[in-house]
Structure formats: C-alpha cells, structure tokens
C-alpha cells in the first residue's frame, strides 16, 4: 500500500510522522493560541473591574435570565454540531444537513441575543422611585440627590452604556464583541459547509475531517462563552468580587 502510493506520486500527506493529519494539528495549535487571545482580553476586563469612575456597572445592566437563555442556546448548538458530525461519519447526509443547519440557526439566535443585549445596554434607563431608595445600586444612588422634592416621586433617567462610557463598557463590549465576532465567523463557516454539502461530492463522509475542523472551532467558541458567562456575568453581578 505505502509502496504503491509512493510510486503513484508520493502522497506523503497521508503518512505523517505522528499519524495525525496536518490540519488537525494546526487547528489544535491555533486553538491553544486563541486561548492566549481570549485570556488577554479577560485579564484586561478583570484588571479593570471595579475601577470604572462612573456607571452603569454590571449590576445595573446585566440580566442573568436573558443571558442564561442565550447560553443555553449556544450549548445546544454545540450538541447539534456534534450530532451533525456523527451523522456525517455514519453516512447519513440528510441528518448531517439538518443538524448543521440547526447549528447555524442556533448560532445566529445567540448572535441575535447579543445584539438585543447590546441594544438594551446602550439604551439603559434608570427607573427611580424616591420612596424606595434602599433597593438602588451604587450607580443608581448617585441620582438620589434629586429626590429632594424638586422632581417627581417617580422618574426615568437615560443612562446608556457604550464602549466609551466607562472602563466596564470598554472592556465588556470589546471582550464580548470579539467573542461575537468569532461566533459570526463560525456561522459563516458552517453555512458555507451547508451549501457546499448540497453540491454533489462537495462534502462526503470521506471528507469528514473538514467538518471536524469547523466543529472544533465551534466548540471552542462555546467553551470560551462558558468562561465568559461565569466570570463576566455571574461574578459580575455578585457583590464583593
């Protein structure tokens, strides 16, 4: 076999030193490298945590239930991605296409959640009831001096969070924005595979590794979100962290 292949033109790429494929090694080395990328962004976020000079702060804007839902969607997209790959290796092309497309849809849904969330933050409003000052966050309390009878008992103040507002806004939007960018690239990659798979011979069970590489990337984006969800969102709202 080896002799025959060599004689037919040296397909060395099938006989690597380690027996692993080049592309898979490249992908894993790249993912290790990407860990450093997100590590630096997360370090920046944490170093600047609690150093913003003004609000809004995490406890003002984060909505844990909404973000839990989008986290759930992203986790499920990982499951459907591995089911797509599993279907492909079993030769079930229709199953592959269905699971792949649903992965794309869930990825797009996650991005939709992110757009919604960013939009909410930018248009954030402080709802004020002068009779309930004790429930306010630190940032909201900075408006409390208006409750001296000169304004209405209940008022609404626009206090949006943008990347320019404070250090929290800067670090939060850039970190989650780059994660969102990774998700967007992943959706494009998977969609390209979906359309390519509609072509005859485009994606076949023999080419399962091409899909495996995209899947690895997709799962990596997922595990980065697992960390972001805990460290930025859950710890973010937790007082004293």
């Amino acid at each position: 076999m080896a002799q025959a292949e060599l004689a037919h033109g040296g397909h060395e790429e099938h006989q690597t030193t380690t027996g692993l494929s080049h592309k898979k090694l490249l992908m894993w080395a790249f993912l290790g490298s990407d860990c450093m990328f997100f590590g630096s962004l997360i370090a920046t976020y944490l170093v600047y945590k609690n150093r913003s000079l003004g609000g809004p702060l995490p406890e003002d804007v984060f909505d844990i239930l909404t973000t839990s839902t989008s986290t759930f969607v992203l986790l499920m997209s990982s499951m459907s991605m591995v089911l797509a790959y599993s279907a492909l290796t079993r030769g079930n092309m229709n199953g592959f296409r269905i699971w792949l497309l649903s992965t794309c849809i869930m990825g797009a849904t996650f991005l939709g959640f992110q757009v919604f969330e960013f939009n909410e933050f930018v248009n954030h409003e402080v709802h004020f009831e002068c009779s309930h000052l004790e429930d306010l966050t630190k940032f909201e309390r900075t408006f409390a001096d208006r409750c001296d009878g000169t304004v209405d008992e209940v008022f609404i103040e626009h206090a949006g969070l943008t990347p320019r507002t404070n250090l929290f806004g800067t670090t939060f939007f850039v970190l989650t924005g780059f994660h969102g960018g990774h998700v967007t690239l992943g959706v494009i990659w998977l969609l390209a595979m979906f359309f390519y798979s509609l072509r005859k011979g485009g994606i076949t069970p023999a080419k399962h590794e091409e899909v495996d590489l995209a899947a690895l990337y997709w799962h990596f984006v997922d595990i980065v979100w697992i960390i972001i969800f805990t460290v930025i969102y859950l710890f973010g709202v937790f007082p004293g962290f």
Partner: peptide
Amino acid sequence: GTNFFVTSAGANPLL
C-alpha cells in the same frame, strides 16, 4: 474612543 488606556477614565497605563 474607548477607554483602555485613558487615565482620565480611571485606566491604568501599566496595563
């Protein structure tokens, strides 16, 4: 116009 290294926004240039 973000604030990563803007000291007037509380940033620390040592970062």
